[in-house]
Nucleic acid binder design. Structure first.
Lengths: 183, 183
DNA sequence: AAAAATGTTAAATAAATTTTTAACAAACTT
DNA sequence: AAGTTTGTTAAAAATTTATTTAACATTTTT
């Protein structure tokens, strides 16, 4: 190989590795496995990769690469690419961090809103029953009222979060917070 | 106890439990342990709690509660409260989800920006050296240039993320995305 | 000062997650 | 059609993370 004739080559790889390390380290805070984090960071500097290339580059098993790629696809951080002539599947990293941000957080927040809003609606309905029930003690009625109001109040947050999701998905947020600051 | 005379009492607790379950379930996606997630969700419906009350309510060990509380304090999801006369420490859940959102994500994003920006700056400096080095092969120069530009481009995202953090922390974001929608 | 209560740290255990090896299924070549 | 290549599923092993038990330090009460 040319590394011996060209010491700069190694320096370029070293530079990439610094960024790969940083990306991977912040990524496993995002709920992906170390394998998936390293894989994404590696792919970030490649045009596209096959499973065998991944296995070779990361020195890990093929099923691990297969699983990691699938997980990354769920978060839209990796896309399958069509490569004519090649029997092997090829994958490319999403290099636009804005898109990754959008998919990842919107997915996460929508799940949170849906789940909690559903629970809140059910709970409030139960509490309403209690409030309409004459046999309830004063103490219980107070508790039911207080809880009902607390839940009602929390809905403001979930509606806001849903709103944030929609603003991000539509791109409207960039009107308020532009990608490039024009000075 | 009064549960036997007042069936509504049980219904109120059941209603709370539905929400506790939902909150806890979405929370462990936020990188907190199940114990911490359950604890926060439980505290959400309490005024304040001591470690012993937590242990009793969740039926878990005291060190587990102690650790969980500390973790939740780091994310500003729980605050220590002063209770005169009580020797036991008391803690209260942050009930304002907007504040929890702010602290949690801003902390996370700032860490991401800092870490990746530092790596990028270092990498770009290395790549600049390569570009200034006459001994580098054409192939290596192209690779260095391409990588440098890719990193330069990614900085747009990190600057935007930092901007988002600042807008959330200052509350400016609520001018664009109001908490309450006035119709 | 001794005993008791409270909270934390450290070591050990338990549980869950991640990764690998091995077996399998599907698609393509010859 | 038999044999390869490629990718996935399933079971096992390894690693990591979470929780508990036990020991300790600190403060308070008697």
């Amino acid at each position: 190989m040319s590394e011996y004739r060209d010491p700069s080559r190694a320096k370029v790889e070293e530079a990439k590795d610094k960024v790969i390390g940083a990306i991977a380290e912040t990524m496993d805070l995002y709920g992906v496995t170390p394998a998936a984090a390293n894989l994404y960071a590696t792919m970030y500097f490649k045009d596209q990769m096959t499973l065998d290339e991944m296995r070779e580059e990361l020195e890990m098993s093929k099923p691990s690469m297969s699983t990691s790629v699938r997980k990354l696809q769920e978060n839209a951080m990796v896309k399958k690419t069509y490569t004519r002539g090649s029997r092997k599947h090829t994958y490319a990293a999403e290099k636009n961090f804005f898109r990754s941000f959008m998919v990842f957080y919107c997915q996460m927040w929508e799940r949170e809103v849906k789940m909690n809003m559903e629970a809140i609606e059910e709970a409030q309905s139960d509490l309403q029953d209690v409030l309409n029930d004459d046999s309830s003690s004063t103490e219980t009625l107070d508790e039911a009222r207080k809880t009902y109001d607390q839940l009602e109040d929390s809905k403001t947050y979930y509606r806001w979060l849903q709103d944030l999701v929609e603003n991000i998905q539509s791109g409207e947020i960039f009107e308020f917070l532009p990608k490039e600051k024009h000075e």
